[in-house]
Write a protein that binds this DNA or RNA. Structure first.
Length: 177
DNA sequence: CATATGATGGACT
DNA sequence: GTCCATCATATGG
C-alpha cells in the first residue's frame, strides 16, 4: 500500500521525520529495487538561505506545488531528489539524503549517490510520487522515537538555526563528514 | 551564446 | 577537517 497524499500534507519538518524507516521502491523494467530511508532533510523555499529555491523561479514554483510532487534538483554532476510537502503554495520540500538497500546492493550513502544507484534523473521532475509507476513509497517498520536523531544540515552555506536534518541512529548507511 | 553558481563526492592531510 | 573536478541550471546579452 503506497503512502497517500495526506502523508505529505504536513510540514516539511514533520514529513522528513516520519519518512525515516519508510520504504522507497524503484521499478527498472521488470526489477523492483526497495530501500529503507535512513536520512532526510527539510527545506523551506521562501526564507531558507540554504535553498536555491529562494532565488530560483522554477524550483520555487515546484516546491509550491501539490504535496507529493517529486522535485529533482541537479547540482554538480548529481541529482538530488525531494518530495514536495505542505499545502499548495507553501514552498516546502524534503530531501532524501541516504537509503539502506534492502533487496540489492549499492552505495546509497549520500543524496547524489542514491539517485545514481536508483537511476533517478530529471525525467522524474514534477511527477507525482503517489501516482508513479516507476517510483513510490510504502510504509515500513515503525522506528522508535529514540532512534531518530535531529541535527543541522550538511553542505549548506547558510543554514537556519533550526535542526532540519533527521537520521536513524546507528544506521550504517547514514552519510557523514 | 557566455558565464557564474553550487542542497556533492571523493581524495587527501 | 580541506581542496577541487565537474556539469546541469539560471540568467543576462
Amino acid at each position: 500500500m503506497p503512502l497517500q497524499r495526506e502523508f505529505f500534507l504536513k510540514s516539511a519538518e514533520e514529513v522528513a521525520k516520519e519518512l525515516l524507516g519508510k520504504i522507497l521502491s524503484r521499478r527498472i523494467g521488470d526489477v523492483v529495487l526497495t530501500a529503507k530511508i535512513v536520512e532526510t532533510e527539510a527545506y523551506y523555499g521562501e526564507e531558507d538561505p540554504a535553498s536555491r529555491a529562494c532565488q530560483n523561479g522554477d524550483l520555487k514554483k515546484t516546491m509550491e506545488k501539490e504535496a507529493g510532487t517529486i522535485l529533482v534538483y541537479g547540482v554538480h554532476n548529481n541529482w538530488l531528489i525531494n518530495f514536495v510537502t505542505g499545502k499548495e503554495g507553501k514552498a516546502e520540500a524534503v530531501l532524501l539524503r541516504a537509503l539502506e538497500p534492502l533487496n540489492f546492493s549499492g552505495n546509497t550513502k549520500g543524496p547524489g549517490l542514491l539517485t545514481k544507484v536508483l537511476r533517478i534523473d530529471k525525467s522524474f521532475h514534477k511527477k507525482d510520487i503517489c501516482n508513479c509507476e516507476e517510483l513510490w513509497l510504502e510504509d515500513g517498520k515503525a522506528i522508535k522515537e529514540e532512534e531518530v536523531v535531529e541535527s543541522y544540515r550538511i553542505g549548506v552555506k547558510k543554514d537556519l538555526k533550526k535542526k532540519l536534518r533527521f537520521y536513524i541512529k546507528n544506521s550504517e548507511w547514514v552519510s557523514k563528514k
